[in-house]
Design a protein around this nucleic acid. Structure first.
Lengths: 137, 137
DNA sequence: ATTATTCCTATCGATTTAGTAGGAATTACA
DNA sequence: TGTAATTCCTACTAAATCGATAGGAATAAT
């Protein structure tokens, strides 16, 4: 299941990408327009900023803005920041690999094999979709 | 994240599919061999039986057995029973559809569009993989 | 009868999710 | 220089889900 955090984060990024120019967009504006609890959205955008997806400006007339072109913001990266690993099990994760305690031999594990295929097919979509694709109306 | 329930369920199905003949396999045997808590596995196999993936025989010398050939047991179906919807959001689920409360127009929602693509690529794998594929050594 | 097994219901602790609360720090501007 | 508006940060919380565990009823073989 996609978390609300990810869902809200994607909607907010799309909203920002659709703005004219590159002026900072305020959390309050996004929250209102996209029907997202403002305080929750604050924390989400903070996460995105810390991970390098967004820039911010503090104080009055502050807000969030893109620091890359939409076409350079890859969904796979955004998803990893918001949702965590793309793989369904840690033992097939490229970026968050962990061995299973219960599995003596990974190469003989059928769950492992299946989940590698699922991961690869998901990645193919997420690597080839950018924020630009989402924000085209 | 794949739940332990699903992981254990897939391992158990594979174990059963690999047996000679079609004699009932006991929960205790599977649990021991695959390092799965027995009581937990009991409830998982019960779920699989109720959903039509497995048959069972009660009492002494009882156990679980396949009621279809491994090549007829589709991973997409098994995953739906164990893990629930394959889609990451209910609004793109084929079998468990639900409208989002926050989304006024589904067709204009960018999350919706992206998640349809993810769902389809995942389905392509899960529909084309059967228990036979998993159980070939 | 006895034993071995599935079947069923209920409960529980830990973790995660989806926020909320409160305020500090920073900036614009009158 | 003061005030308002904004991001930033920490802490907390209610509810749901996960990963079991407990205890025993029902059923079948011997």
């Amino acid at each position: 299941m996609l978390s609300k955090k990810t869902k809200y984060g994607l909607k907010a990024l799309t909203y920002i990408a659709r703005q004219e120019g590159n002026k900072p967009v305020q959390v309050g504006e996004i929250a209102k327009s996209e029907q997202i609890p403002q305080k929750f959205l604050e924390s989400i955008l903070l996460t995105l900023r810390k991970s390098g997806c967004l820039g911010s400006k503090k104080g009055k007339h502050g807000g969030y803005y893109l620091i890359k072109r939409p076409s350079e913001i890859i969904m796979a990266d955004v998803m990893r920041v918001l949702e965590g690993p793309i793989a369904m099990v840690p033992c097939v994760s490229l970026n968050f690999y962990e061995k299973c305690d219960d599995c003596p031999d990974e190469n003989k594990c059928t769950v492992n094999k299946l989940m590698i295929e699922v991961r690869d097919s998901t990645l193919q979509v997420l690597r080839n979709t950018t924020l630009e694709d989402l924000s085209i109306k």
